[in-house]
Design a protein around this nucleic acid. Structure first.
Length: 213
DNA sequence: CAGTCGATTCACT
DNA sequence: GTGAATCGACTGA
């Protein structure tokens, strides 16, 4: 039998912990995106941890900049970045204010508002692909740079929030190398996913881009 | 201030 | 399995 998901919002303290503790604990949680057309709710099935300035794979590795500023702020806020000239990816900031760790949300299952997500994900061949991959996830939820810095633990209205949902049991959690991370940063097995979940994205090693003429 | 390349996705072979 | 698309942040001179 399936337990009814808990719709209680996760408090800020949830995110004010070591990122390697928070990341696997996010699997099975519900991310609610409130849009003008209605809510889109995602059950998280795949995440990656980025451990601040000590982590060569992290955007915070070379220090604080205009882009990654939110990573250095208080936990429970959303860090959104733009990449490859066309995509956005979203993270949840962890650890105390002044530190810079975050969890990249890589994939999930749309459990509410699929009709809204489909409009933004025309090329998806089925609903499992709506949020299979970090840029797809952000696209499906209509998350882009304007939402950078959003407080997902705000007291009142907020466009993004994380609910307790149904956390997966530890035996359902798998972990392995991070996807697409170049150099030494790739070695950490800090990608976490739900075992046998069809919405988890395929692993791809980092591929350097060829020079154009 | 020009060069490089990315926490990726998609179309095509 | 391979390569194109596309732009802004970051790097180093």
């Amino acid at each position: 039998m399936i337990a009814t998901p808990d719709r209680t919002p996760l408090p800020r303290e949830f995110f004010d912990r070591p990122v390697l503790e928070v990341a696997p604990d996010l699997l099975g949680r519900l991310l609610v995106r409130t849009t003008p057309d209605g809510p889109i709710t995602l059950r998280l099935t795949e995440v990656e941890a980025y451990d601040g300035p000590n982590d060569p794979g992290s955007h915070a590795y070379r220090g604080r900049t205009a882009r990654n500023d939110v990573m250095f702020g208080p936990p429970g806020h959303v860090y959104v970045y733009f990449t490859y000239g066309m995509w956005h990816c979203m993270n949840l900031v962890c650890g105390p204010d002044g530190t810079a760790s975050a969890v990249l949300l890589r994939a999930g299952e749309i459990v509410e508002g699929a009709e809204l997500a489909r409009k933004r994900r025309i090329s998806a061949r089925n609903d499992k692909e709506l949020a299979k991959g970090p840029a797809r996830l952000a696209t499906a939820l209509d998350v882009a740079r304007p939402l950078d810095g959003t407080d997902a633990c705000a007291a009142g209205e907020t466009q993004l929030r994380v609910l307790a949902g149904t956390p997966v049991t530890p035996d359902q959690v798998r972990n392995g190398p991070r996807t697409g991370v170049s150099g030494e940063g790739g070695v950490h097995p800090w990608r976490f996913w739900v075992a046998n979940d069809p919405t988890v994205s395929p692993y791809r090693a980092h591929t350097p881009r060829r020079r154009s003429s």
